[in-house]
Write a protein that binds this DNA or RNA. Structure first.
Length: 884
DNA sequence: GCGGGACGA
């Protein structure tokens, strides 16, 4: 059974909450060790700085080269923050370089052999010349850097029995510094960009036209070759002036001073005073900060330095937990304070803050929760909504709320940070707030479009990947696909084709990645590519924002993703393969330009891009079930939801549907006011139907079982990992839980081993106490459990029809039991379901049998006797499918 | 006969 369950092992850091746990009580030994570590670190840094200064003077870097070196060192900042799992980059870069060298040498040899006696055109001769030139340059550099740079093996910072947080972040920071130092020594930084460009150009030409086709081995790949047009270049951001502070400070005395010096090299540093003035003059400010500008780490510090934290905290929201954690860690290092003291973070299950905390990083959903306890955010003097362009459900609601409180709290400053495209829109929404632009640092990305539309994008993506592998210079490939199944198919086809090509091409390592993949398999994509090989990462949208993979130089973008859409009328959710937006396409392209110039191959035409794609993705708030949003807003005292100031209002039908549901659950009274039940429900960070189920469990004395079920239901369907090759095995394992056909909800009770579910359960247990519900276990009374479930889910009832399908009772539509359900073969006469999904059919997921009379008993306001009178019962054999 | 991705005092 192991391996079937997806171990949701998020890296959890030990809580270090209260301020009193280390000030006085830190043991002497620890202090000594800390001291030793600090000294060692400082010593290392001094040595490195000295070496780098020497090197720099020797090489007499031109201003431009220096600029390039800084740019490179900065580009790594974000990566370090985002990928703590990163292994030593230095080593990887070295290998990559050697690989490049060998490949070019081989290329030159091959070509000399192949073109012997063939008359080359002038252009071809010139390209050959470039290659030889590049080869010489690379050779020279490899020899030089070999003795100049020290390579370090990755530190193991995950120890058994817990994660040493200090160690872990210090490793990340150290690595960041190593890279910065290492890159500064590279006198060929600028050269390399040119080389990459030229290599790409040269090999593309040779590969597709002449050389490779002469060899039969490559025929297969090139039979169905796809023609691309290089239509545009997404420019790297330029910054006009060079900042020399970094080098002036290179003899810095301590690690902290060095960090401070590094801060000054960020693009944002030059705008510091201007920014502070703008914040002083305006209450709301829209900040456009490109990737790598340092806005997330620096702005809160600037505000702190300017004294804003004297009046209250500076809060900065992130859409993702890891981002909140790692940014906070970085900032605490820069400020030289312990994480959780002056700088802290707050995410679900983990509050790493104390009374001292003045800079607080948190997930956007967390700030939303804080609103419930502190509707005016009195504790904050500044709120910064970062990555606002991602438009998560939580940010959209935050917008409305902060805009509202800003009106009666003139001392509260709001910073909204977004990408370029949306800035105007944000500004308009916040009453024409000024826009403050900060340039970032990014490498140029060449965009290629197909000449003609591709009918089969999956096949086209595979062909393109192989095409790149054979013809383009080293650098890993990232392919965006829509889902697990597609990724598995692509992996199979690719493996098959590679086998067909035998050993004539370099090794191609295929790495699938999607959220449902077990963590240990996910780690594969972060392993550095071995020498002589190339990695191709087949990813879902997860790689678009949530994780950063190093070494990606080519991106293949078929232009599709799966998107959730919600039909408020039927209450049905579905995942549709939809064309992506322009914003999304650009985000994808940008993934190739993180560590060097990159290329993006779009499997659609330039015409498609400009005319068929939407500018922005439809914000989540317009395509989701709003029941818990409505409950939350109601409990914040916002009554007129239809006129609430949403930036992009959700369809009113969705709002009305949610209000109707909350009324049915008796969370709202007839006037639309929150009831006592509703107030208790709002305490739970769950869907209202689940909250209601918990609240109702008090009456049926089975709260213990119910919160287990609720936590399992709320983590959704990602429990069962079901890889293609082990489907049968996985299904058998799952069926074991359904022994006795007790219904899907109760079957969940038997699955207790998942960490995330446990976390949620623990949280819910705490909340039970808060709303004064006793934790009572009643393990053998399934009827009580089922009645509790029914109390929350009675609007989701369905009745069996003669043909084996079901019909929902209240808003009649035909549905089916999902094949993964334990009741799929049993077909009870009456069921409640957790959710409706539209996939190949209209399915009810998570189904439990119920007695129709319960509906009238539990929800007399919702069901009348005539609704549940079994008109078909006379035609059906008695007793069959009757509730037990 | 079946899964985009985040997120929650």
């Amino acid at each position: 059974m192991a391996g079937i369950f997806r171990g949701q092992e998020e890296r959890r850091v030990k809580r270090r909450t209260s301020s009193d746990d280390d000030d006085g009580s830190e043991s002497e030994e620890e202090m000594k060790r800390d001291q030793r570590e600090r000294e060692q670190l400082e010593k290392n840094l001094r040595e490195r700085d000295a070496a780098s200064t020497r090197k720099l003077t020797e090489q007499k870097l031109s201003k431009k080269e220096e600029e390039e070196a800084i740019r490179r060192s900065m580009a790594m900042e974000e990566d370090d923050i985002h990928t703590l799992r990163e292994v030593s980059r230095q080593e990887y870069l070295k290998k990559r370089e050697q690989k490049k060298l060998e490949e070019i040498r081989d290329d030159i040899e091959d070509e000399q052999y192949l073109f012997e006696g063939v008359k080359l055109s002038e252009k071809e001769q010139r390209e050959m010349g470039y290659k030889k030139q590049i080869f010489e340059l690379l050779k020279k550099r490899t020899e030089e850097t070999d003795d100049a740079t020290e390579y370090r093996m990755p530190d193991a910072y995950d120890q058994e029995g817990g994660v040493n947080q200090e160690k872990r972040f210090s490793v990340a920071i150290q690595r960041y510094r190593d890279n910065a130092a290492g890159e500064k020594m590279n006198p060929f930084a600028e050269q390399e960009a040119w080389e990459d460009h030229q290599i790409g150009k040269a090999t593309l030409k040779f590969g597709s036209k002449n050389k490779k086709q002469m060899s039969d081995d490559y025929q297969f790949v090139f039979e169905d070759q796809i023609a691309f047009i290089n239509a545009s270049v997404m420019d790297g951001d330029k910054f006009d002036e060079l900042q020399t502070e970094l080098h002036e400070q290179s003899e810095a005395q301590s690690a902290l001073e060095k960090l401070q010096a590094d801060r000054k090299t960020l693009p944002i540093y030059r705008y510091r005073d201007e920014l502070l003035k703008a914040v002083h003059d305006h209450q709301v400010l829209v900040i456009v900060g490109e990737t790598g500008s340092g806005k997330t780490t620096q702005i809160p510090q600037y505000l702190h330095e300017a004294g804003y934290t004297k009046r209250g905290k500076v809060g900065c929201t992130q859409p993702r937990r890891v981002a909140a954690m790692s940014v906070a860690a970085r900032v605490s290092q820069e400020m030289g304070v312990k994480l959780g003291h002056e700088v802290g973070y707050s995410i679900r299950f983990e509050d790493c803050t104390s009374e001292k905390t003045v800079l607080k990083y948190m997930t956007d959903g967390m700030l939303l929760r804080e609103f419930l306890g502190e509707p005016d955010l009195a504790g904050y003097s500044v709120v910064m909504v970062d990555e606002a362009h991602e438009r998560t459900l939580s940010t959209d609601i935050l917008f409305g709320l902060v805009k509202d409180i800003a009106r009666f709290r003139p001392d509260l400053k709001l910073l909204i940070s977004s990408a370029t495209l949306d800035a105007e829109k944000f500004s308009d929404y916040f009453d024409s707030a000024p826009i403050f632009k900060i340039p970032g640092r990014r490498y140029p990305v060449e965009i290629h479009y197909t000449k003609a539309p591709e009918a089969d994008y999956l096949d086209a993506a595979i062909v393109t990947a192989l095409q790149i592998h054979v013809t383009q210079s080293p650098g890993d490939i990232l392919v965006f696909l829509t889902g697990q199944e597609e990724i598995e198919t692509a992996e199979e086809i690719m493996k098959h084709r590679i086998r067909g090509l035998g050993t004539k091409i370099a090794e191609l390592i295929i790495c699938p990645i999607y959220a449902n993949l077990p963590t240990e398999l996910q780690a594969k994509i972060f392993e550095p590519t071995p020498e002589g090989a190339r990695k191709v990462v087949l990813a879902t949208n997860i790689a678009e924002t949530s994780l950063t993979i190093d070494g990606i130089k080519y991106v293949i973008d078929p232009g599709f993703c799966k998107m959730k859409s919600y039909n408020p009328r039927t209450g049905m959710e579905s995942l549709l393969v939809t064309p992506i937006s322009k914003a999304s396409a650009n985000q994808r392209a940008g993934r190739s330009g993180r560590t060097g110039p990159g290329k993006c191959f779009r499997l659609y035409t330039a015409y498609n891009y400009y005319n068929d794609l939407d500018d922005n993705t439809v914000p989540e708030i317009q395509r989701t079930n709003l029941a818990n949003v409505v409950l939350m807003l109601k409990s914040l005292g916002i009554h007129d939801l239809l006129h609430f100031d949403f930036m992009d209002p959700p369809p009113s039908e969705a709002l009305l549907k949610s209000l109707e549901l909350l009324f049915a659950l008796s969370a709202l009274n007839k006037l639309g006011e929150l009831t006592k039940v509703g107030r208790r429900m709002a305490e739970f960070p769950l869907d209202p139907m689940l909250s209601k189920m918990i609240v109702a469990s008090e009456k049926y004395k089975c709260s213990d079982e119910i919160i287990s079920i609720a936590s399992m239901l709320s983590i959704g369907n990602s429990i069962f990992y079901r890889p293609k090759d082990k489907q049968v095995h996985a299904d058998n394992a799952r069926m074991n839980f359904h022994a006795g056909n007790v219904g899907d909800h109760i079957a969940l009770l038997k699955v207790r081993s998942m960490k995330r579910a446990r976390d949620i359960r623990d949280q819910l247990e705490g909340l039970l106490e808060r709303v004064e519900i006793e934790l009572v276990s009643n393990p053998n009374d399934f009827e009580a459990v089922k009645k509790s479930i029914t109390s929350g889910f009675f609007p989701h009832s369905a009745r069996l029809q003669k043909n084996g399908s079901y019909r929902t009772v209240k808003h009649p539509q035909t549905v089916h039991i999902h094949p993964s359900s334990g009741l799929a073969q049993v077909l009870p006469r009456w069921v409640v379901y957790h959710e409706l999904v539209l996939t190949t059919k209209e399915y009810m997921r998570q189904v439990t049998e119920l007695k129709p009379e319960w509906l009238v008993e539990i929800a007399p306001h919702y069901y009348q006797l005539k609704d549940v009178e079994d008109s078909t019962s006379k035609k059906m054999p008695r007793g069959e499918g009757r509730a037990s």
